[in-house]
Amino acid sequence: MPKPTFHLRVLIDEKAALGPGKADLLEGIRDTGSISAAGRRMRMSYRRAWQLIDALNTDFGAPVVDTATGGKGGGGAQLTPLGEEVLSRYRRIEAACAQAIAADVAALRKRLVR
């Protein structure tokens, strides 16, 4: 049976939200060590990637990503412990939701006319 597909956006409060875009960006930074590479992987501009990281930093009151300035030795980025926690918690919430809706999604799929 196919895994339920959904887009989860968690509204943490009136101003702070965490969804698949921010989570995928954090995952990309973790995997590539680069904000620009993570953004490219998502077909997102560096500026937009930075805006999302800045929003997370503001929302959580501390950096979610550590950066090193580029240049001769190269730059880079990595998730802070807070960034790892934010990503991990979002993925756990996402997995719990997928499990919770699996039976209903399967029932709806059976009702599709194809």
Rank of each mutant, 00 (worst) to 15 (best):
P2S: 08
K3N: 07
K3Q: 11
P4R: 05
T5L: 11
T5M: 12
F6S: 10
L8G: 10
L8D: 10
V10C: 15
V10Q: 06
L11T: 03
I12Q: 04
D13P: 13
A16R: 09
L18Q: 03
L18A: 01
L18H: 01
G19N: 04
P20W: 02
P20R: 09
G21F: 06
A23C: 02
D24R: 15
L25P: 09
L26C: 06
I29T: 05
D31G: 08
D31K: 05
G33N: 07
S34G: 05
A37M: 10
A37E: 13
R41A: 14
R41G: 15
R41K: 14
M42Q: 12
M44F: 04
W50Y: 13
W50V: 11
L52D: 10
I53Y: 02
I53T: 03
L56D: 00
N57V: 05
N57M: 05
G61W: 07
A62Q: 13
A62N: 07
P63A: 08
P63V: 08
V64M: 04
V64K: 01
V64I: 09
V65W: 01
T67G: 02
T67C: 12
A68Y: 03
A68E: 14
K72C: 02
K72D: 04
K72F: 04
G73L: 10
G73N: 12
G73M: 08
A77N: 03
T80W: 00
P81S: 08
P81C: 06
L82K: 15
G83E: 07
G83D: 04
E84D: 10
L87P: 08
S88A: 15
S88Q: 10
R89E: 13
Y90W: 08
R91W: 00
R91Q: 13
E94A: 05
E94P: 01
A95D: 11
A95F: 04
A96T: 06
A96K: 12
C97A: 15
Q99P: 00
A100L: 10
I101L: 14
I101G: 00
A103R: 15
A106D: 15
A107I: 04
R111M: 14
R111F: 00
V113R: 13
R114Q: 12
